[in-house]
Amino acid sequence: MTAPLLRAQGLKVAYPVKGFRKPPVEIVHGVDFEIGAGETLGIVGESGSGKTTIGRAILGLAPISGGAVEYDGRDITAFSARERRALSREIQVVFQDPYSSLNPSLTIGATLAEPLIVQGWDKAKATRRVLDLLDQVGLPKNAAARLPREFSGGQRQRVAIARALAPGPRLIVCDEPVSALDLSTQATVMDLFIDIQRETGVAYLFVSHDLAVVRHISHRVGVVYRGEIVEQGPTRQVTKDPEHPYTQRLLLAAPIADPTAQQQRRADRVRLRALQAEQDLQAMGAHA
Score class of each variant (00 low, 15 high):
8 A>M: 13
9 Q>Y: 10
15 Y>G: 00
20 F>S: 10
22 K>G: 11
23 P>A: 14
25 V>W: 07
36 G>P: 00
38 G>Y: 01
42 G>V: 05
49 S>P: 04
70 E>I: 00
81 A>G: 11
83 E>I: 04
85 R>N: 14
89 R>L: 04
89 R>P: 00
91 I>W: 13
95 F>D: 00
99 Y>P: 05
102 L>H: 07
105 S>V: 07
106 L>F: 15
108 I>E: 03
109 G>A: 06
110 A>E: 13
112 L>S: 01
113 A>H: 02
116 L>A: 04
117 I>H: 08
119 Q>V: 01
122 D>K: 04
132 D>A: 13
133 L>C: 05
134 L>G: 01
138 G>E: 05
139 L>P: 04
146 R>P: 01
157 Q>D: 09
158 R>H: 08
161 I>C: 11
162 A>F: 09
164 A>Y: 13
167 P>Y: 07
173 V>W: 03
173 V>N: 02
175 D>M: 11
177 P>A: 09
179 S>D: 13
182 D>N: 05
186 Q>H: 09
190 M>Q: 08
195 D>I: 02
206 F>L: 01
207 V>Y: 11
207 V>D: 11
216 H>Q: 15
228 E>I: 14
230 V>S: 10
241 D>Y: 14
243 E>W: 03
249 R>W: 11
251 L>C: 08
255 P>Y: 11
262 Q>N: 09
264 Q>P: 01
264 Q>F: 06
266 R>Q: 14
275 L>C: 00
276 Q>L: 15
277 A>M: 12
278 E>W: 02
279 Q>A: 14
286 A>K: 15
